[in-house]
Design a binder for these strands. Sequence first.
DNA 1: GTGAAAGCGCTAACAT
DNA 2: ATGTTAGCGCTTTCAC
Lengths: 336, 336
Amino acid sequence: MTRGPSMADVAALAGVSAQTVSRVANGLTNVDPSTKDRVVAAMNEIGYRPNSAARALKTGRFKSIGVIMFTLSTFGNMRTLDAIATAAAQAGYSITLIPIALPTQVELLGAFSRLGEHAVDGVIVIVESHILDRSDVSLPTGLPVVIVDSDAGDKYSVVDTDQAAGARDATRHLLDLGHRTVWHVSGPEGSFSASRRKDSWEATLLEAGAEVPRVLIGDWTANSGYLHGLELANRDDVTAVFAANDQMALGLMRALHENDIAVPDRVSVVGFDDMQEASSFWPPLTTVHQDFSAVGRLCLEKLLDQIDGNSTARGVAVIPTTLIERQSTAAPASTT
Amino acid sequence: MTRGPSMADVAALAGVSAQTVSRVANGLTNVDPSTKDRVVAAMNEIGYRPNSAARALKTGRFKSIGVIMFTLSTFGNMRTLDAIATAAAQAGYSITLIPIALPTQVELLGAFSRLGEHAVDGVIVIVESHILDRSDVSLPTGLPVVIVDSDAGDKYSVVDTDQAAGARDATRHLLDLGHRTVWHVSGPEGSFSASRRKDSWEATLLEAGAEVPRVLIGDWTANSGYLHGLELANRDDVTAVFAANDQMALGLMRALHENDIAVPDRVSVVGFDDMQEASSFWPPLTTVHQDFSAVGRLCLEKLLDQIDGNSTARGVAVIPTTLIERQSTAAPASTT
DNA sequence: GTGAAAGCGCTAACAT
DNA sequence: ATGTTAGCGCTTTCAC
């Protein structure tokens, strides 16, 4: 608003040209130390601040990257965003956040065009949805893009947690403990992560020659886990459940507690994410740890590579997971 | 990067002046409909997008607001950010996120100056710390500012949850149930919210003529709640605990479970925040609901008022809380 | 209703 | 090592 002092003002005060002020402001080397001191002093005196709009207008670079995300309230998304923001700050970039209300194609495209009007050099999309995989959907080109959790590695640069390995480890852990089979409470239908985890769970069961129970479809919320847990509590053939995230595992365990079914004595439960609270659940939850910070950092790195023009704009980069064994899993009681 | 088509390009194609294109782009009225149609057609044809840097340079408005927040974002902060981002998008503003690594004065001032170089019309600070209350600390002026959770209402515009009322309701609820007194696991020393909640708990106890137990100082994490819970579990005079957030309440309950102390039968627990998972804790947690969305919306509203020049830049706006009674509280067993 | 001119604050390119 | 010139894409002002 209040237009602050410009380079011209600094230049006048220091008795040099605006160009020299520019050189000092950008830390270029070829400025005489004494001149530089004078300029710096002048800057401080009048409280000079570079005007990023003018710089962007001239250079075509905004030093800002856009992040499009579906309501940031899930634990993983916020951790990823945090990591992106931190890495961006280190690289001298700021983050422009564009929230979308629904993870739909229309919303996403809308966000993209709003972003087109804003000042960003590249975009990271965190939308956890299959919408980008459809061959008929294309993001406007011309802007570097990195996508988190998607199957569209052939079209874009994507960064992803190794969902398949995580789900396999979780399932196998339960099988190795001696459980006949493992039930699964999945994420919602449209979610890419959800289907990856479900597919891997199923494949692991098949591979082990175990029966594949009907999938229970949740929506990531603890409450959906609770609802399915109520159903599971009524069957006495269930001894092990793999929930596609920690929240649903939490809800599931609540339903089990309510029905006096001991965890892990009668039913073992494993989650996915390793949210901060997971170790304080009752009982402390065995779960698959995702390294969200690594995802965020890698996203930014890949995006910056694209912005600087030295990069393959497609392909999938995968971050490994780790199974964290806590106290919600044990051998089945019936094993003799 | 790839410089897109400019107004001049559109103008050339439509056979009008750049000026007319500008008028159309800004929705001004005095343009002949047929001319307007031609311009719009030309825009679409070559995929014109306004260049925000150029506009900002000219108008001095960036249509973007900065949000400075402490990196290790808590549940509440994220929800607040979400609400801010959504409200901002509706008002045609984007959000520039500036994370700070530590909630210190130095970091905050640094973030502020980085922001000064970036393109924002105003700033929202979410740092949950007392640093802004100190009379010797002042944020650079000239930029509209709104602060969340602070005591500096005399210097800035601040928006806050009614921490005092929430803590009082929580404490009184326990007292009303018949508990002799209420223990408190507080947030960390430097936190404004933490001390507000603690003070109010203490005042409520005093007012009721109840003994005030030693405060147990936590750090918002479930683990710190767990550690204090272990200590509490060793005393048989404890029947009611008010934790300053849900995570600590969760950890506390875990410690109680481990020591076979029934909740709420032997010890009642209440939290603060009402995070999404709280209703799925075991047992479902009685807690103080904070309306983070309202906080975020109000922040933006107040900031926009300042930006538009019609506002008092100081004062405190308070959002009410609600006590949500679930199953972690009951009358003390010893009551006869 | 429309156009022409000027300039926002900065930096790239070319002087010196 | 420093200055000069020009122009990024847009909007404001004033003319027609």
